[in-house]
Amino acid sequence: MRKAGNFVELSRNEIGKEDITGKTFLYEVSEQVVSDISHYLKQNVPDNEADTIFEYLVSSRFGDDSITENISDQVMQITNELVEQVSDKMGCNFIGIINELEKHMEPLIKRLKNNIHINNNLLEQIKMEYTDLFNVIKEVSAQVFPKFDLTEPDNNEIGYLTLYFAQAIESKSKQVNVVIMCSTGIGTSELLRIKVQNVFPNFNIVSVTSNNDLSVNKDDVDLIISTVKVSDKINVPSVIVNALFTQKDQEIVERKVNEIWSKKNEN
């Protein structure tokens, strides 16, 4: 099998029900492809060729929308360990990229298991622009993946992983104008403000206000961090967090900031 000029070798792993869960449509497509090839060649193609095609489609991130709901324990463990170690070595909190990285990690692991190699046309540019980050991710990956009986990702894969961490760094370097809304007392509001500022030093906290202050203007504010649901009349992106601003809340905020900057870059 050839893909974009790169030779691809697939190991003959038997597909189990757990592999197909949430990806039934892809497996049905694979079976139909085998049927069509048999008809075209006028000879029987072994049914287990559908397994090979299925593995290749999953490894190529076809059916990506279904991945979020079917993240395996192995993917979550590898992703969390990778993010934790890279965060420690870089002195930067990357917890906000975990969800998106998990969606990338699922097909990456499939590629490693099936000896599928992909080409990264941006590799040299990534290595030049984010040299330290690339090297740290490569070093950490060499420790993390073998722990799960997986081969180390090659430089092409490391390059793609680096882009997720690089996006988080770029987002953190940009100033974000924030309003904090809190329905409780001044003490709680001030505690939330301090916690937010400590975790996100690039946030410019414009004001701390009571819940659903309709004077908040989208032209002046990028994000509202609130402990209560924000009124639909306020046309500003918002997230709801706990007043204690837990790690889960920090992930929610970071994902929202990444989303905001992605939309701005598209425009």
Rank of each mutant, 00 (worst) to 15 (best):
L122G: 08
F145R: 09
N99K: 15
F165P: 03
S87K: 11
K110L: 03
E190R: 06
K147L: 11
N217I: 03
I109L: 10
L133H: 02
Q125M: 14
T131M: 10
G187K: 04
P107I: 07
E81T: 13
F145L: 06
D219R: 11
N119C: 06
E152P: 00
K110P: 01
M128Q: 15
C182L: 07
P107E: 01
V179T: 07
N156K: 07
T184I: 08
S207F: 03
F145Q: 06
K172D: 15
I158Y: 08
D88H: 08
K195H: 07
I169N: 10
P153I: 07
I169Q: 14
L161Q: 09
A168P: 00
N217S: 15
P146A: 04
C182R: 05
V208F: 05
I109R: 09
E106D: 13
G91V: 08
F134R: 05
M90S: 11
F94L: 10
V178A: 09
M181Q: 14
I116P: 00
K172W: 03
H104W: 03
P146W: 08
K147V: 00
E190N: 05
Q175K: 15
S171A: 15
S171G: 06
E81H: 13
R193M: 12
D154L: 07
S226W: 10
M90W: 02
Q197S: 15
K172P: 00
I205C: 06
N202W: 02
P107T: 04
G91H: 06
I180Y: 03
I225W: 04
V228Y: 11
V178F: 04
R111I: 02
S215W: 07
V199A: 13
Q143E: 14
I225Q: 09
I97G: 00
F134M: 07
K218R: 13
I225P: 02
I186K: 12
F145Y: 15
N135F: 03
P146H: 06
E81N: 11
G159W: 10
P201I: 07
E81D: 12
P153N: 09
H104E: 07
N204T: 09
R193C: 06
K218H: 11
N99C: 06
E84V: 02
M181G: 02
V216M: 09
I205M: 08
V136F: 00
I158H: 04
C182N: 12
K195C: 08
G91M: 05
N155F: 08
A168I: 06
V196T: 13
E124D: 15
V144M: 07
I116C: 01
T131F: 12
F203T: 07
L112P: 01
N212F: 09
I98G: 00
P107V: 05
T184F: 14
T209L: 15
D220P: 01
V86I: 12
L108V: 04
V140F: 04
I137T: 07
L133I: 05
M128P: 00
F94H: 05
L161I: 10
Q85C: 01
I158D: 08
K172Y: 13
E152V: 14
I180M: 02
P146Y: 09
L101F: 15
A166M: 05
F134K: 02
S226M: 11
L82V: 10
L112T: 01
L191F: 05
D154R: 11
S189R: 02
S173F: 02
T184H: 12
E129N: 13
I126H: 04
L133A: 04
V136T: 12
V179H: 09
V140L: 02
L161H: 10
